[in-house]
Design a protein around this nucleic acid. Structure first.
Length: 212
DNA sequence: CGTTGGATTGGCT
DNA sequence: GCCAATCCAACGC
């Protein structure tokens, strides 16, 4: 299967809520130091914008979130809960501080390596969740700040963009109940089994009863 | 310098 | 459904 051309810088230089749904169906490609290529198709993402109380960027730059305030098209990786990494794509204008969290991919290539990284044999448990995804693809501190447009360790290609009809929106997972819980900035491919089991922050008419 | 809690996951009741 | 795991960034004093 063709990877398609790489997504250009201009693709990322837009608001995160615009970029996020268009990332679905794209290929996330990871080249390991030993040459192994891992690849999956994005099926679930979340947008984090400027002035977003749920965003790490809320409150301004810190050593941890600095990459978010850099140029778009780079990878922002952070460590959380003492054991998991989460990976984001930086979006918007340089200095803006917005990003899209990569929550799940459908594994397409390098499944054996993913299984080893995850210590699981069930593909549904490889990359269905932000912490699982980074573990399966061996993405960690070293990949923080990686340039997705020009680098070779991690990048995104055109892949198979999906029709907007197939994109479902819900509130975000794990953002609590405060401000920031309401906007429906989690985008997923309707009916895809590899979407994470994470529950939206504010279940309601917009989320629970929607057909998949 | 001490405290708090996290854009999660997996195992157990 | 509940909760422990396990580190460390952010923040307050």
């Amino acid at each position: 299967m063709r990877l398609g051309p790489r997504l250009p810088r201009a693709f990322f230089a837009r608001p995160s809520t615009e970029v996020a749904p268009e990332l679905l169906g794209r290929f996330l490609v990871r080249r390991l130091p030993d040459g192994t290529r891992l690849r999956g198709r994005l099926v679930e993402v979340e947008a984090y914008g400027p002035n977003d109380p749920a965003s790490h960027a809320f409150g301004g730059p810190t050593p941890r979130n600095l990459v978010m305030f850099g140029p778009p098209g780079r990878l922002y990786v952070y460590f959380t809960y003492g054991m998991h990494f989460c990976a984001n794509v930086v979006t918007g204008r340089d200095g803006e501080g917005s990003a899209v969290l990569l929550r799940a991919i459908e594994p397409l290539e390098g499944l054996e390596s993913m299984a080893a990284h995850r210590n699981r044999s069930e593909p549904l448990l490889f990359c269905s969740g932000p912490g699982r995804l980074t573990q399966a693809l061996a993405i960690g501190r070293a990949e923080n700040g990686a340039d997705l447009v020009r680098g070779s360790e991690v990048f995104l290609t055109a892949g198979e963009p999906i029709r907007r009809r197939v994109v479902a929106r819900t509130t975000r997972v794990g953002v609590g109940t405060g401000p920031g819980a309401r906007p429906r900035w989690r985008y997923l491919e309707r009916g895809n089994a590899f979407v994470s089991p994470g529950r939206p922050s504010a279940p309601g008419p917009a989320t629970g009863s929607r057909r998949s």
